[in-house]
Design a protein around this nucleic acid. Structure first.
Lengths: 338, 338
DNA sequence: ACCTGGCACTCTGTCCGTCCGAGTGCCAGC
DNA sequence: GCTGGCACTCGGACGGACAGAGTGCCAGGT
């Protein structure tokens, strides 16, 4: 196991490298951090850290830079999450409070995250599958043609046409509407299939066909996950990426356009708590030189979607994690209120 | 006025520069294009072209590169629009034909444009203001609460709640629905206000309040232009921009995120025919080193929105214009069919 | 056992001088 | 009005010298 001081050396290396973007040597380290030992000692520690694969030197006789493994250790053991300052928190809240609807909330969130972290921000629209039903409306367009409108707790509205196998009376319609709402309102989407299972039994035989049709349309709407939209912002921050431009930035831009890839990435991240994927830990090759910090957010304690940032592995992890967590928290509040 | 040969020299310079991305000199010109004159003559012509501001030399004793003014002349007088080849046309059609709904059409269009031109593609969602009404549906949610659903010819669906000042009978509702549809179905949004003006007069006094409320909600929906969404793709192509990276690319990425700016830009472009804005002709500063090629597209002959590409001023204008025009044409067809 | 100072070594980045080639402008001649 | 020739100017490439940073290792001190 690494001694306490070696861990401190690693921490110092990560911090300096993130700040200066240049390989850091033993002398500079002892000058900027009071480790209480001489450069020579630090050199020995660095050699050990290099043996273990936590740091590497780009060329002989250059300083060291952290490896993905080094960042991993830093994030897991050496760095906490830097909480936002009071003014920052207020600014976040003010900015998000101005939102007028769901689209606006998402748009503002993306901007905010990008600005706070000075990196690329990714926000997933609240997904249907995990949210809850606020209201179901059922309307007769014609004797045998209904319109089903579903309103979610996050403010999304989905609509479907339903062609009934048989004409459906006004009384039956009102009945179904009332029963539906009392059964599913406030429930999670995932629970709905179970809850409505027995509903047709309460109706006359001639109406059951229609009721079943309506219900299956409703279930279809619920699972329609292809609506998983994603909004991205702050791509201009990619220009601060590193020195060797086109090569680094291109695959990242490509990855960002592949929403499917990003959704998968976010999906793989842990459901609760914050997830940090560093460099090669990202399955997608184009993002091998980036780190992704993501976290779920939602209206209650329940996460309904994810948001996060994509940046160079050389990023300020504590600060980024703090910003991501804070934003997720406030977005959750906003969604709960509306 | 410039002689015919000088124009040819300019054309040759533009073509070579676009191809090689390097300043082009007199000797290279005579070798690659058979102008029938010697380098010395070309030099004189180039000096004249430089005096007129069509070309410039980055440094003394380097070749010449076209200025914005030079490209302008090239586009206006010297180059046509390069039509797509047969296979290309078929590929476009195949690719777009696979689309399942409006979102998909737009998404595919963006990808397609970006691939064809190897530049950044911008597609505006069919805007409400210029499209036509396919159908208006009016539903009673409660005695004094209606839902208004508007379906456009481009497949968009908009919905609004309407709180009536007074209860509204089923018969009146059916009447209003029928009258509304016969009045506005198939009409352009911009004509609707005029068309529905006299509609309340046909109803009983007690219903007029509600009818007016419904109509004003409808008109609100029509003018709600903030829905002007924009989709962007192919940003990875920015990496092929030029040599001096971060500085050139950053403002462009920033501009691309400012959808408002882009919408304005597209809006300013001429309504009919293709518009090419070169370099400083773009009002927005961040796009001063880019050219924007845009064109309207729509379901009939009528343009309902715009699409285009953003690329370096040093772009293949004939090819780009050809691709943009072809894509716009096919998207129009698809929209008309659906 | 561990830290430290010293020393030799190895790179990289930079500066500078040189050189070559491409390109130009101009001029005299056809 | 075109052409060939000529002198001139730069920018980019090449190469050597140099300084600086950083390393590894070792012998000595606590």
């Amino acid at each position: 196991m690494l001694s306490e001081r070696r861990l401190q050396v690693l921490r110092a290396i990560v911090q300096d490298y993130v700040g200066t973007e240049e390989p850091v040597g033993s002398k500079a380290l002892t000058e900027r951090h009071n480790l209480g030992v001489s450069p020579a000692t630090v050199r020995n520690d660095m050699a050990a850290l290099e043996d273990e694969g936590f740091i590497a030197q780009p060329h002989t006789s250059a300083g060291r830079i952290p490896t993905d493994k080094g960042y991993r250790l830093f994030v897991d053991k050496l760095a906490g999450v830097k909480p936002m300052s009071g003014p920052e928190r207020r600014a976040i809240q003010n900015f998000l409070d101005g939102a007028v609807d769901l689209d606006d909330v998402v748009a503002r969130t993306v901007r905010l995250l990008a600005q706070l972290t000075r990196q690329v921000a990714v926000v997933q629209y609240p997904s249907l599958t995990r949210s809850t039903v606020r209201h179901v409306e059922l309307l007769a367009l014609a004797p045998a043609r209904l319109m089903l409108v579903l309103i979610t707790d996050t403010g999304r509205v989905e609509q479907r046409m339903v062609d009934c196998p048989a004409p459906f009376g006004e009384a039956s319609l009102a009945d179904l509407r009332a029963r539906l709402n009392s059964t599913v309102a406030g429930r999670r989407f995932s629970d709905v299939p179970r809850l409505v299972e027995d509903l047709p039994d309460a109706f006359d035989v001639e109406d059951r066909g229609t009721v079943s049709t309506v219900l299956s349309t409703l279930l279809e709407t619920l699972v329609e996950e292809n609506e998983e939209r994603l909004v991205i912002g702050g791509t201009a921050n990619l220009t601060r990426f590193g020195h060797d431009f086109p090569l680094t930035i291109r695959p990242v831009l490509e990855a960002l356009e592949e929403h499917v890839v990003l959704l998968k990435l976010l999906g793989e991240a842990g459901d609760s708590g914050m997830t940090v994927r560093i460099g090669h830990e990202n399955a997608y090759e184009g993002l091998n030189s980036t780190s992704v910090v993501s976290v779920g957010y939602g209206s209650g304690g329940e996460a309904v979607a994810k948001l996060g940032v994509v940046g160079p592995t050389r990023m300020d992890y504590p600060g980024t994690m703090g910003a991501v967590r804070a934003v997720a928290r406030y977005v959750g509040q906003i969604l709960a209120e509306s």
